[in-house]
Structures are given as C-alpha cells and as structure tokens.
C-alpha cells in the first residue's frame, strides 16, 4: 500500500514537471526568476493547465468509483450512464434560456440536470434482472444515447451543435488562470468523498449489509448522487468531458488494491489525475505545435483499456 502511494506521488510529480515545460510557447524553468514574461506564462497558463488536468482526472475517477459502488457494477461511470449527457442537456437549456447567466448558475443548472439524469438511471436499474451484470452498462449506454439524442435535437434546432462538441471532448488548451478555478471545487468534493470512504465501501456491499450496520443507506446514496453529479457538471462546464476516466481508473486500481476506499481512494484519484495529465501531454506533442484534446486521446486509450477489461475477465465477472 505504501508502495502504491509512493509510486503514484512520484509519477504525478514527474508528469506535472513535464506539463509545465511542454507547450507551444518557448519556456525554460531557469528563466522564471529573471524573465517576468516566463513567470507570467508559468502562472497564467502552464500551472493552471496542469492543475486543471490533475483535478479533472482525480475528481472524475473518484466520481466513477462512487458510482460503481452505488450501482454495484464495475462497468459504469457518469459518461456511460447518461449523467454527462444530462449535464450537457441542462447546460444547453440554461444557455438557451439565459445566455448571459454567470458560470456558477450554469454549473448549478447543469448539476441539477445531471442529478435527475443519474436518478433516472438508478430507477431504470431497478427494472433490470439482477443476475445480468453486463446488461447494466448496455442499458446505460443506450440511456445516455437517448439523452444525447435529445440534446443534439435541441442543439440542432438552436444552432448550438458546436457547443456540444466542446462540452463533449475535454480540452485543456484553453485553460488560463481565472477560467478553471471551479475545478478546485471538484477536487474538494473528492476530498469529501474520502471522508465518507467507509460509508461508500459499505454501500457497495448492498442495502441489506448497510442497514444491518446501522448506516443510513438512502443518505449515502443521495450523498453519492450529489457528489457525482456536481463533479460531472463542474468538469463539463469548465473543460468538457473526458470519457472513461471514471470507468477505467477504478477498475485498474481495484485489481490490485480492492474496493476498500479508505486505502484505495488516494491511488484512484492520483492515477486518474496522472492519466488525464498524460493524455493532455500526449495531445500536446503528437502534432506539435497543434493540439489534440485530452478527451479525444483518452477516448481512444480508455476504450482500449475497457475492451481489455471486458475480454480479460472471467465469465462470472
């Protein structure tokens, strides 16, 4: 366990350093003390971008693991269960109805929509036979497809399709100081989740076990719902969705560390942040000086890992 923490921390440090050094503009770390322009570049662009990627990855991974425990299914995350699409739909509606609304208001509207979308998914789940775990992500994907179709329909009518594109693929190239700080809120939510780590772990054992241990199961579910939808909305509003982080990262961590969140949540968050930062870095260098969005890079990587998880697991998974 110590080793996992140490490895995660080291990897994060190296990636962060790289992220600060790599970019379209010329920049050397030793210039910071002498050159005010270099310092400004560091403070307004490189550091915010690094933080944004780390916070997005960490909070999305935490949201994913919470969702997996609440749904009691390994193959779900906000992006495959309609939560992201619902957040986008809410954002779209508030953009249509009140284009000048402050970003905080937009975020809240988006979070409310995400909450409704996720609650809707949980209700759908009750109708599914419990013995078919792989039906859950299938239905989730179709459900999110429908909400996405609704959003596309509205965006098409209102000529806002390009907005959907922006929200859908997470991109950090536009991150500047003053335009990403909401993400710290997402990071704070991940910390709140850590405080309630035991409760989420117990909830993952099912309602009966939770109740037997005197836990208020409904309260935990609501806490999880609120956390996941707020994180989703915050990410969608600030940088756009990074698909599969919430799905792939918890699965990788659970393979070696299990589901005891008290021990594994820091690694989940660290790995999530590190992978998203790595995806962003890759997108920065692959067609230098142009950029490929981190969300697009992660879409390819994440889908490949998901396939490996699906094919590599025993049939009873």
């Amino acid at each position: 366990m110590r080793l996992s923490y140490l490895l995660t921390a080291t990897a994060l440090l190296v990636l962060s350093l790289l992220s600060v050094l790599v970019g379209a503009a010329d920049f050397r770390l030793q210039d910071v003390t002498a050159d005010p322009d270099a310092l400004r570049l560091l403070l307004t662009s490189r550091l915010p971008r690094t933080f944004a990627a780390l916070l997005t990855g960490a909070s999305m991974a935490v949201a994913g693991v919470i969702m997996q425990l609440l749904v009691r299914n390994r193959f779900v995350e906000p992006g495959t269960t309609g939560t992201t699409e619902a957040a986008m739909l809410g954002l779209l509606c508030v953009t249509l109805l009140a284009p000048g609304a402050p970003i905080l208001l937009k975020m809240i509207a988006s979070a409310m929509a995400a909450l409704v979308g996720m609650a809707g998914f949980l209700l759908l789940l009750r109708r599914l036979p419990p013995a078919q775990p792989l039906l859950v992500p299938l239905v989730g994907l179709i459900y999110s497809g429908i909400i996405g179709a609704g959003a596309t329909f509205i965006a098409y009518q209102a000529d806002l399709l390009q907005y959907l594109g922006v929200w859908m693929s997470g991109e950090f190239s536009g991150v500047l100081a003053g335009r990403y700080e909401l993400l710290w809120l997402a990071g704070a939510l991940a910390l709140v989740a850590y405080v309630a780590a035991d409760q989420f772990t117990i909830a993952g054992l099912g309602r009966a076990t939770s109740v037997s241990l005197g836990l208020n199961h409904a309260q935990i579910v609501v806490l999880g719902l609120v956390t996941v939808s707020l994180v989703t909305a915050l990410v969608v509003v600030t940088v756009g969705m990074v698909p599969f982080v919430g799905l792939v990262v918890p699965n990788i961590v659970a393979r070696t560390m299990g589901d005891n969140l008290r021990a594994s949540l820091p690694v989940v968050a660290g790995l999530g942040g590190g992978l998203v930062l790595a995806a962003d870095l890759f997108g920065r260098v692959i067609r230098y000086p142009y950029e490929v969005p981190a969300g697009t890079v992660f879409g390819v990587m994440g889908a490949a890992v998901f396939l490996w998880l699906l094919l590599g697991r025993p049939a009873r998974a």
């Binding site: 992500p137 994907l141 879409g299 889908a303 998901f306 396939l307 699906l310």
Partner: peptide, 9 residues
C-alpha cells in the same frame, strides 16, 4: 458490450 465499446473506440 464489446461491440458497443468498439463503437466508442
């Protein structure tokens, strides 16, 4: 599910 994820990929 594999088919769906291939689609996403």
């Amino acid at each position: 599910l594999v088919g769906v994820i291939f689609g996403v990929l």
